[in-house]
């Protein structure tokens, strides 16, 4: 370390400037979302692209919360996303463990098929999915969304979980079995606590994917009381006008659960995303 040449102070300035630029670039859409949500309707068009509105109001928020079906959409989304996240993570953990630890016939084929499912553009399979769901009589139900989302997220989530299990040395389970555990006890007492970061990361990933999914929700749900939040957002677009203020307010509110979820799992996530890669 002592050999390292001292960097020019300008280098540090440049580094922070670059970081700052990136941060501004990434956060600007969020800022704009918040700004429009807080701008009174009358000023949205008259003030154009001013960075700060001359007046602010909470009325968009109160309108969204109390005058629209937003809360219902929100609730639907929560059910769908949490349902998807838990079911997917459960299945992916089981499958990932099997891929990581067991040798069984057809393992390679199953992995290959799972990879192939990830290669199709979603648009291509929307029609067949619609047909299947309709034949099952599940249109306009949240269950259909949970089933479809789960099916689509399982392959990636499985590979993610597998890499976390791969990062846990096999010796640990074997030591636990020598210490008197059954395989399931070893899994519960030794492997599971060590996989928490992986489970957190997978939960978070699937939750966000389901939370922001629009295409399937749009196709499979048409009844107002079963709409998820992204579909509900479109109801702010009417034939003749778009209620930008309320739409943005709804958008801001929709960010809250995602943020809370990530704050909650963040420490697992950071640990998780690195540990899967380098831990031997």
């Amino acid at each position: 370390m002592s050999i390292m040449r001292r960097r020019h102070p300008l280098f540090a300035v440049g580094k922070y400037a670059a970081l700052l630029f990136y941060l501004a670039f990434a956060l600007f859409p969020l800022y704009w979302l918040l700004k429009i949500a807080l701008t009174p309707d009358a000023l949205i068009f008259s003030e154009g692209t001013r960075l700060l509105p001359s007046a602010m109001t909470w009325s968009n928020f109160s309108a969204v919360l109390f005058a629209t079906d937003f809360l219902a959409y929100f609730g639907n989304s929560l059910i769908v996303s949490l349902g998807t996240a838990f079911v997917t993570t459960l299945v992916a953990a089981g499958a990932g463990y099997a891929f990581s630890r067991f040798v069984f016939a057809g393992k390679k084929i199953i992995i290959a098929v799972m990879l192939i499912t990830q290669m199709f553009p979603l648009l291509m399979i929307i029609a067949p999915i619609y047909k299947i769901v309709a034949d099952l009589g599940l249109l306009n139900s949240l269950t259909s969304l949970i089933v479809v989302y789960t099916a689509f997220n399982i392959p990636f989530a499985t590979f993610l979980m597998q890499s976390f299990f791969d990062g846990i040395p096999k010796d640990l389970e074997e030591a636990a079995m020598m210490d008197g555990c059954s395989r399931f006890q070893a899994l519960r007492k030794v492997v599971f606590p060590l996989t928490l970061p992986g489970l957190g990361a997978t939960l978070g990933f699937v939750f966000t994917a389901a939370w922001s999914e629009l295409l399937f929700a749009l196709m499979l749900i048409s009844r107002n009381d079963a709409m998820t939040f992204p579909v509900g957002l479109l109801t702010f677009v009417s034939k003749f006008s778009v209620d930008w203020g309320q739409m943005m307010a709804a958008g801001v509110l929709a960010l809250i659960p995602s943020c809370l979820f990530f704050i909650f799992i963040q420490r697992y996530l950071v640990q998780g995303l690195t540990s899967g890669a380098v831990k031997g």
Binding site: P169, D171, E174, A175, A176, M177, G180, S182, P193, L194
Partner: peptide, 20 residues
């Protein structure tokens, strides 16, 4: 007989200590 029922202890090369 399963490992747990053999009443044998093993010391692993990697030590295999439970990290948590």
């Amino acid at each position: 007989v399963r490992p747990r029922d053999r009443d044998i202890a093993m010391v692993f090369q990697s030590y295999a200590l439970y990290p948590h």
